[in-house]
Design a protein around this nucleic acid. Structure first.
Length: 494
RNA sequence: GUCCCCUUCGUCUAGAGGCCUAGGACAACUCCCUUUCACGGAGUAGACACGAGUUCGAAUCUCGUAGGGGACGCCA
């Protein structure tokens, strides 16, 4: 990991606060964070809340909380708790930077790169329809682009509203972008019409804010989603008009659902928050989404944040879209989960057990043994609920899958004998050895062995013929509970 | 419609002209471990979208076709 500071390497993550943080956004943020740490540069969080209709303070807080949960700390941006600006390039919320955009828009008007446009919605709609009908490119060509500035100022003085549009040079030429993930991309300049910089409401538009902020915040590398690729042409034009240096761009592929369509709500969980609620670990989410479009040069699959930070580089990103595979995510999560120290794992499991109303003994020895036993069965924290249920009092039930075992001729006798032995046991708990001895007793008394011995006892303890090792499980349950369970099974067999 | 991007096993990917009879991982299947299941271990099966070209040689370079995605907003 590069430890020296590199003030020339500056990246930003710029979400718009309209809901929870999406896994796609999380991946962009992760790459930026990792790259910043690796290069010893700065990671900036900027809130793109210029869409007044959809942006909410609530969403911003949620996204900040999600980034915090993932452990993607930013060096500059809103403070995670107080939301106060952190860093020398603030404010970091675009809604608080309007004066800057206005300022730059005025400069562009003065330099002849922008103009006031008084087109109405109806006129715009009409132009669009005409273009559509004629099969031509649907670019806006504003009739106001070459009017005298004094004329516009007069109308403005009368209280009329106008948008500020960028004046695209009518002489066609190619703009060449050297994308960090896609290589050379060529855009013909007539791909776009005179696009809006500032809405008539005075609120600037994404493509404009983005450029102004990246320039002012001295962003050197812009990693963002592929859907912004064609926006880059507009942004290149603005950079050019401003005489500003272009940052390096890297357009990351999108993340798809199992049906190869862009990942969305109908595919199930897509927000980081949902994954948190479903018992996924932040380090697992990070690890998994990192591999959607990037791969370790060592071919490593399970990686810590430190390892990813060490191995990340500008140039290993994949340009083709990736399908989000829940199965593999589960495996990654399970791997990270099993690597967790027991104390830590227990702390994480606690809320899941609590909300499911599962009460288990509080002594650490018991917890330690229980965890060691259950770990191999757990792939998410939420799995602990089903796993620990059999260890809780009063939750016992015989599951349908136990019927086959119970139907064996000898099963009734085995369960009966088992109950009898436990009932007569002098202590409240059986040790592993005592359990083995009890099992031996049943064996000789009932004259059965193998699965005919083992499975019915398992059902009498767990209510099902599968699960963790009995010799560890049984000592975790107290005698009265074991008896009650055997009795329940016996009753059910009558 | 116009422009831009993408295309290696079911999925994530390795692969930068000969190291590729294409490697790894998840999932599947088989076996081992285990008096169950899981964990772990060993295997099996499974892909260069298609067609031309360049080259002694192409998954890798070029062009075309097909399919998928994106942009064309006073959304981001």
């Amino acid at each position: 990991m590069a430890s020296s500071t590199n003030s020339a390497f500056r990246v930003r993550f710029a979400p718009s606060p309209t809901g929870y943080l999406h896994v796609g956004g999380a991946r962009t943020a992760l790459y930026c964070y990792l790259l910043a740490r690796h290069m010893g540069g700065a990671f900036v969080l900027r809130i793109e809340d210029t869409d007044e209709e959809r942006s909410t303070e609530e969403s911003m807080r949620m996204q900040i909380a999600d980034l915090e949960w993932l452990g993607l700390r930013w060096d500059e941006g809103p403070h995670p708790q107080t939301l106060k600006d952190l860093g020398p390039h603030g404010p970091y919320r675009q809604s608080q930077r309007k004066h800057l955009y206005q300022d730059y828009a005025q400069r562009l008007i003065k330099s002849g790169h922008a103009f006031y446009c008084f087109m109405t919605d109806e006129e715009l709609e009409q132009q669009r329809k005409q273009a559509e009908a004629s099969g031509q490119a649907q670019q806006i060509l504003s009739p106001y682009r070459d009017r005298a500035l004094s004329e516009a100022q007069a109308r403005l003085a009368r209280g009329e509203k106008a948008a500020i549009r960028f004046k695209v040079n009518p002489v066609k030429r190619d703009y060449v972008l050297n994308d960090l993930v896609r290589g050379e991309v060529v855009f013909p300049s007539d791909m776009v019409g005179d696009f809006v910089l500032i809405r008539s409401s005075g609120m600037p538009v994404y493509n404009f804010c983005c450029v102004i902020d990246d320039v002012l915040m001295q962003i050197s590398h812009v990693y963002r989603a592929e859907e912004h690729l064609s926006n880059t042409l507009r942004q290149m034009m603005i950079y050019e008009a401003l005489g500003a240096k272009l940052p390096q761009f890297g357009h990351l592929s999108i993340i798809l659902g199992p049906d190869k369509q862009k990942l969305s709500k109908r595919h199930g969980a897509t927000s980081c928050n949902e994954y948190r609620l479903n018992g996924y670990l932040p380090q697992a989410i990070n690890n998994f989404i990192a591999m959607l479009g990037w791969s370790s040069p060592k071919g490593q699959e399970i990686m810590s944040m430190a390892e990813m930070t060490e191995q990340i580089s500008l140039d290993r990103f994949n340009s083709s879209p990736a399908v989000f595979d829940d199965q593999k995510l589960k495996w990654v999560n399970a791997s990270h989960l099993r690597a967790l120290p027991d104390d830590e794992l227990w702390t994480l499991i606690q809320p899941f057990l609590e909300s499911a109303g599962i009460k288990v003994p509080s002594d650490t020895g018991w917890r330690h043994r229980a965890l060691e036993l259950m770990k191999p069965y757990m792939s998410t924290l939420a799995d602990s609920v089903e796993l620990f249920k059999p260890l809780a009092r009063g939750s016992f039930q015989v599951l349908p899958e136990a019927q086959e075992t119970l139907a064996w001729e000898s099963s009734r006798a085995v369960v009966g004998k088992w109950m009898e032995i436990i009932q007569g046991h002098p202590k409240a708990h059986l040790s592993e050895e005592e359990f083995n001895a009890a099992q031996e007793q049943v064996k000789s008394s009932c004259q059965v062995k193998g699965k005919f011995l083992f499975m019915p006892i398992r059902v009498a303890v767990l209510g099902k013929p599968h699960g963790a090792e009995l010799k560890i499980l049984v000592p975790l349950l107290d005698k009265s509970e074991l008896v009650a369970r055997a009795q329940t099974v016996l009753n059910g067999m009558a």
